[in-house]
Design a binder for these strands. Structure first.
Lengths: 138, 138
DNA sequence: ATAAAACCTATAGTAACTACAGGTTCAAGA
DNA sequence: TCTTGAACCTGTAGTTACTATAGGTTTTAT
């Protein structure tokens, strides 16, 4: 079996993120400062791979760094309970729904404009898209 | 009737954006450098109100500054035709749809986690949300 | 005339990274 | 063992679209 230590490049591959991002997470305290080799290279263990995966997947779900910091505190301190984490996930789901609603309205507006636009061959002066955006005050 | 000149503060109110944002748009070339008063204050006319409204509404529809710069070039140069603008609006609609799809998947993931979580009273060790995020390699 | 509100410029800060520059260490082949 | 190239190191600057602050000047209203 191989030793359970990973270079930062290996960690990056295992958790599907970039080396620079790991540096950044370390600087901002999401990832711990790992032990180093003689020469000063970072040396990671399996727990780091797990933690970084957690961070990446949380980012993919739209959590901000600050929210993830909070989630990690819940995990790091063993006296916290699941309720707080559930509440955060529910809140996050609500925010995502809100964003979806906004984008749906936005899409409506765009489609309306596109439908009305005669397209090629007509000058910008007659373009209803421009019209729609260029609302003159009074 | 009043003179058709507006201070930057009045312009900001008429186009529903902040004074600092107008400064920023000027620096980055979206808004032109307007004439000044004796004392050096910016003096705007109706065309500026229209242009700033155009920019704001385009931003609300999710266009980036670079895209708006392009749209404004189409408008500023009288030899362009509506087709290019229609194409940009359609492309934008496609991108918005893509974002909506991504967020829908994300919401699914969150709701699944929330549904499985027993909540209050259970320790973090048993939490399926943590479980779902903390995917161990190997 | 005076004082408050609005304006001016320039710089730094925000989120979450990404991309250098210029140097050091590690791993593999000859 | 030596060498070379890949991977690593630190630190700083750039990205997007603004927002905020500081410290000073002009305008406007009383």
């Amino acid at each position: 079996m191989s030793t359970p230590f990973y270079s930062i490049g290996q960690l990056a591959k295992l958790a599907a993120c970039k080396v620079e991002t790991i540096h950044y997470y370390e600087k901002t305290g999401l990832m711990p400062e790992p032990p180093r080799t003689e020469g000063g290279h970072r040396s990671y263990a399996l727990q780091h791979v797990k933690r970084l995966n957690f961070i990446r997947r949380s980012r993919e779900l739209g959590f901000t760094i600050e929210q993830i910091r909070k989630l990690l505190r819940f995990i790091d301190e063993p006296d916290h309970y699941c309720g707080e984490i559930k509440a955060m996930a529910m809140q996050q789901a609500r925010e995502v729904q809100q964003k979806i609603n906004d984008l749906e309205r936005l899409k409506e507006g765009l489609n309306l404009m596109v439908a009305q636009c005669k397209g090629q061959g007509y000058s910008v002066d007659d373009c209803p898209i421009i019209e729609a955006l260029y609302i003159a005050p009074e």
